[in-house]
């Protein structure tokens, strides 16, 4: 039996909730159990957003992410707030937006997600999906095809560019240290 916890946090408009939703949906499509708790402020843009994703091969008691195996810090504020909780896991951050600061988690791994998104998808908006690709590879629970299918279902108009971002994230993963 296994249980994996993934925390994604940033500010509104970065696709924090979308990334969590695609991760959960693809896990369920792959035959696993998944929960995703989104929390957010009042604003649609800006403000703080968090996705707590739990993936398991059995019923999930608590959907809370208390000790993330993987924490994607998409903003400085998110890093400052949650990096400590991932002390036993790995923190993925974009050095362009997050300075890891004086109290980093045990394993912080830089992923130039914005740059990879611009290169692969032609838009920095896909940085969340690049991170998702890295997360999928790190989890190594199911093929990325399930996430590609989820992207096609949830964002049919922008599926192709996001799939390119996802693949670029997956391809980048082996280069991640830590």
């Amino acid at each position: 039996m296994f249980r994996h916890e993934v925390l994604i946090s940033g500010f509104g408009g970065q696709g924090v909730a979308v990334a969590g939703r695609i991760l959960g949906r693809s896990a369920v499509a792959a035959g696993l159990q998944a929960t995703m708790l989104p929390s957010h402020g009042t604003e649609t843009r800006g403000g703080y957003v968090r996705s707590q994703v739990v993936i398991a091969d059995d019923d999930i008691d608590s959907p809370l992410v208390e000790k993330p195996d993987i924490f994607c810090a998409l903003s400085q504020a998110a890093y400052t707030r949650f990096a400590q909780s991932a002390a036993q896991g790995v923190v993925l951050y974009d050095p362009e937006t997050v300075a890891t600061g004086p109290a980093p988690a045990a394993r912080s791994t830089a992923v130039p997600a914005r740059g990879i998104a611009l290169e692969s998808a032609g838009t920095a908006l896909a940085a969340n999906i690049v991170m998702l690709g890295v997360v999928l590879r790190r989890l190594n629970l199911f093929p990325a095809d399930y996430a590609e299918q989820a992207l096609r279902e949830l964002m049919p108009r922008h599926a192709e560019s996001n799939i390119r971002a996802l693949r670029a994230g997956c391809a980048h993963c082996p280069h991640c240290a830590g």
Binding site: G24, V28, S39
Partner: peptide, 9 residues
């Protein structure tokens, strides 16, 4: 809110 906003299968 966690039940209504939360995702699961």
């Amino acid at each position: 809110q966690l039940v209504t906003d939360g995702y699961a299968s």
